[in-house]
């Protein structure tokens, strides 16, 4: 619902040719999610690699990276440039 709100607000004010700020945010979250996920994979197979981190067994990097990827992909899809407006 919040996405719908943001979407309608963005369309109401952004001139047709200007890319929405939410697209940039989605893109950077997507890229960061991928980087964090890839960087966290070695910690799953060899936990000693992340021993300096408390509660490394929670594998926060994996699920946080995945969350960023999902959120980023949703925002990129909704606010991508050139998407046909309703």
């Amino acid at each position: 619902m919040a996405d719908e709100k943001l979407k309608s607000d963005s369309r109401a004010t952004d001139s047709p040719e200007r890319i929405s700020i939410w697209f940039f945010i989605g893109a950077v979250l997507l890229v960061y999610g991928i980087i964090i996920l890839i960087a966290s994979i070695p910690g799953v197979s060899s936990p000693e690699g992340a021993q300096h981190v408390m509660l490394a067994d929670l594998h926060a990097g994996i699920w946080w990276g995945a969350l960023l990827i999902v959120l980023g992909a949703v925002y990129v899809a909704i606010f991508r440039p050139g998407r046909k407006k309703d």
């Binding site: 910690g43 300096h52 408390m54 926060a60 990276g65």
Partner: peptide
């Protein structure tokens, strides 16, 4: 941050 955040998360 250093206590809880692993690779990538620390950069974020």
């Amino acid at each position: 941050m250093a206590r809880y955040l692993g690779p990538g998360l620390l950069g974020l």
